[in-house]
Design a protein around this nucleic acid. Structure first.
Length: 285
DNA sequence: CTGCGACTGGAATTTACGTCA
DNA sequence: CATGACGTAAATTCCAGTCGC
């Protein structure tokens, strides 16, 4: 990314925009995890300027040249090399687009600090157009810094997301799209919400597991201490009462709870207890 | 301080495309 | 010329970690 500053040093950044001729969202998509990839071959020429003329693509591409000072600090992950000059060209199309909440009661405005080109297909064409109109107006701070402005989801949005998460913690692209439409959010936002939700659910579960294991550990420590003590007492008993010495060791058992010694043998076997292993309470998770 | 929306970077995976036998 | 195997680039998703409001 250093090239933006020093390599080219032109102060110019080439921005790429998709002006929709797009039936690509509606017609070519198929259900399935990677349906959106179907549009990739069409986007590809736009990313590699040295391959094909832009006009060969199936939709119009708009390029804008802007001063690099207008670009975002995060920059773009998608970059390519200018074939002729060997100069890195940053594609910042989406970076310059501002998302505007469709809901009028949404006071918060989501920043679009580092939307990447690859994310652009997340947006419906209308959304792109809306964002294009409202872009460059208010997303950036006056001083050009790119502070994240955080959207606060409404209760309704959160509730619906939660509801949806309960049904499936992972969304396929179609579900994501539908949910985003329903919530007046970008698919990317829905995606991020689900990612965060999964991560935090996992974190919570880890904490619960940790507490559980800690309690198990404490219980086992206690049990171990008790058994050690019991062993000591048994040893002491053995020394103090030589009476048991002449009995075969295998016939002697001790009740773990009442600590009484039961003898083996024919007659005694009925009255003696049996050593049933204690069931372990710390079953696996 | 906590909650949470958003971002970054990396891994894994799929797909398209070019090359070669 | 058609075809299959193979390598590679591009694009996607998810996750872990982090930032910052």
């Amino acid at each position: 990314m250093g090239c933006l500053d020093d390599g080219c040093s032109t102060g110019l950044v080439l921005g790429l925009g998709l002006t929709p001729l797009t039936d690509l969202e509606s017609s070519t998509s198929k259900p399935g995890d990677y349906s959106n990839r179907l549009i990739r071959p069409q986007i590809k020429p736009s990313l590699k300027f040295d391959h094909k003329p832009l006009t060969s693509t199936s939709f119009e591409l708009s390029l804008s040249l802007v001063l690099s000072s207008e670009t975002y600090s995060h920059g773009s992950r998608q970059k390519t090399m200018d074939g002729e000059k060997g100069c890195e060209v940053s594609i910042v199309a989406h970076d310059l687009l501002l998302y505007r909440q469709a809901s009028p009661d949404q006071s918060a405005v989501s920043s679009f600090s580092s939307g990447r080109v690859k994310r652009e297909r997340d947006l419906g064409c209308e959304d792109i157009e809306v964002e294009r109109i409202s872009s460059r107006v208010s997303d950036e701070d006056e001083d050009g810094t790119n502070a994240r402005k955080k959207l606060r989801l409404t209760k309704e949005q959160s509730a619906l997301l939660e509801e949806s998460f309960k049904q499936h913690s992972n969304l396929n692209p179609k579900q994501k799209e539908a949910l985003a439409r329903q919530l007046n959010l970008r698919p990317r936002q829905v995606e991020v919400w689900f990612q965060n939700r999964r991560a935090r659910t996992k974190l919570k579960q880890t904490e619960v597991d940790f507490e559980f294991l800690k309690k198990c550990c404490e219980a086992l420590t206690d049990e171990n201490r008790r058994l050690q003590k019991e062993l000591q007492e048994l040893k002491a008993l053995k020394l103090a009462q030589p009476f048991y010495m002449h009995m075969p060791a295998a016939t002697l058992t001790m009740c773990p709870s009442c600590e009484r010694i039961g003898g083996g043998g024919d007659g005694a076997s009925k009255s003696s207890f049996s050593m049933v292993p204690k069931p372990h309470f710390y079953n696996t998770l």
